[in-house]
C-alpha cells in the first residue's frame, strides 16, 4: 500500500492482519478465520453455554440461560454445578486420569514401535522408501471402524490369535473387553500419526552429522543417543501429540474393544449425552476435556521451544 493511499484512519483489516494487508491478502486470511469461527468458535461457545445450564426434561433438555422476567427484565442464570460435580465426583476425575494414562501408555508404545519403523523407512533406498511409506498410509484407505472391527476378529475368544494359540495347545486368552485390547486398538489406529512426523524429521536429518559423530569416535548407539535422538525431538513431540491428544478423547476404540472397566472420558461423555440425556454435564465434561488437551499442547510446545532455543544462554 503506497503512502498516498493510506488514510489517516487505519482500515479494519490492517488492524486485524497488520499493515500491508491488501484486500487479496485479507481475503486469504479471512477464509480460515471464518472457517474457524463458524466451525470451531461458535460450536465451542454453544457447548460452553450449555455447560452452564442444568438438565431439564424437555426439549431442549436443559435450562435457559436467559429468561425474560416481568417488565422485560432479562435474567441470566449460570450454573456452575456441572463443573463442581466434575471436580467433586471421583468418577470424572478418575475417568480423566484413566484417559490420560491410557493415552500416555499408548503414545509411548506407539513411539517405541513407530520410531524404528520411521527410522528404517527414512534410511531405506528410494523405491523401497515409497513402498514402505505407502504401506504405512494404506490402512487409511479403509474405514477406521472396519479396521477396529477387524481387530476384534483377531482378539476375540475364538478369533485368529487364540486359534493359533490353540494349535500349540495353549488355553484361549481373554483379550477382548480388556485394557490390553484398547491399547492394541489405539496403537494400531494412531501408529501412522506417529510414524509420519518422525519420518519427516528423520529423513531430513543430515547424514554428514552421523558420519561426523562416527568419525569422532562414537559407536552407532552413541551416535543415536547423542545426535539422531535429540535432533528428532521435534518429530517425537509432533508424533506424540498427534497420538496422545486424540487418544485422550477416544470413544470408539474403548467402546468396541474395551471392557466395562475401561474408563475413558469419551465414554463418560457419550453416556452423559445419550444415556443420561444430561447435555449440560456432557458439555462441561467436553469443556474440561478440551482444557486437559490444551494444557499438554502448551506444555509440549514450551518444551519444544526450550529444546530449540535452550543451551543458547
Amino acid at each position: 500500500m503506497s503512502q498516498s493511499e493510506t488514510p489517516l484512519r487505519t482500515r479494519w483489516y490492517t488492524k486485524l492482519f497488520g499493515p500491508g494487508a491488501a484486500s487479496g491478502r485479507a481475503l486469504v486470511i479471512f477464509a480460515p478465520v471464518a472457517w474457524l469461527t463458524v466451525f470451531f468458535v461458535v460450536p465451542l461457545a454453544v457447548v460452553f453455554g450449555i455447560s452452564l445450564a442444568i438438565k431439564e426434561f424437555g426439549r431442549p433438555p436443559y435450562s435457559d440461560l436467559l429468561t425474560v422476567g416481568e417488565g422485560g427484565t432479562v435474567q441470566l442464570t449460570l450454573h456452575l454445578s456441572n463443573y463442581l460435580r466434575i471436580i467433586t465426583d471421583p468418577l470424572y476425575v478418575t475417568a480423566y486420569l484413566s484417559s490420560i494414562r491410557i493415552a500416555a501408555i499408548s503414545t509411548i508404545v506407539a513411539l517405541l514401535i513407530g520410531y524404528p519403523m520411521a527410522y528404517f523407512i527414512a534410511r531405506a533406498r528410494d523405491p523401497w522408501r515409497n513402498v514402505l511409506l505407502m504401506l504405512v498410509i494404506l490402512p487409511f484407505w479403509t474405514s477406521f471402524l472396519l479396521r477396529v472391527y477387524a481387530l476384534s476378529g483377531f482378539m476375540r475368544g475364538n478369533g485368529v490369535i487364540n486359534g493359533l494359540l490353540g494349535i500349540f495347545g495353549i488355553e484361549p486368552i481373554q483379550m477382548m473387553q480388556t485394557d490390553f485390547a484398547v491399547y492394541v486398538g489405539i496403537v494400531y489406529t494412531y501408529l501412522p500419526f506417529m510414524v509420519l512426523p518422525l519420518f519427516t524429521t528423520l529423513v531430513k536429518l543430515d547424514v554428514s552429522l552421523l558420519e561426523a559423530s562416527a568419525d569422532l569416535g562414537a559407536k552407532p548407539w552413541q551416535t543415536f543417543w547423542s545426535i539422531t535422538l535429540p535432533l528428532s525431538l521435534p518429530g517425537i513431540a509432533a508424533g506424540s501429540m498427534l497420538v496422545f491428544i486424540p487418544a485422550i478423547g477416544e470413544f470408539v476404540i474403548p467402546s468396541l474393544l474395551g471392557g466395562p472397566s475401561t474408563l475413558m472420558i469419551g465414554r463418560v461423555l457419550w453416556d452423559e449425552f445419550f444415556s443420561n440425556t444430561n447435555w449440560p454435564r456432557a458439555s462441561a465434561v467436553a469443556v474440561a476435556m478440551l482444557l486437559i488437551v490444551v494444557v499438554p499442547i502448551m506444555l509440549m510446545q514450551r518444551a519444544q521451544d526450550a529444546v530449540v532455543e535452550g543451551r543458547t544462554r
Binding site: D206, L209, E211, A212, A214, D215, G217, P230, L231, R311
Partner: peptide
C-alpha cells in the same frame, strides 16, 4: 575398521557441526 576406530578425523565440507550443541 569402522570410522569410529580409525586414527583419522575428518573435517566435512558442510562442517557438519551438531546444531543442538554449543
Amino acid at each position: 575398521v569402522p570410522p569410529y576406530r580409525r586414527p583419522v578425523n575428518m573435517m566435512f565440507q558442510s562442517y557438519a557441526l551438531f546444531p543442538h550443541m554449543s
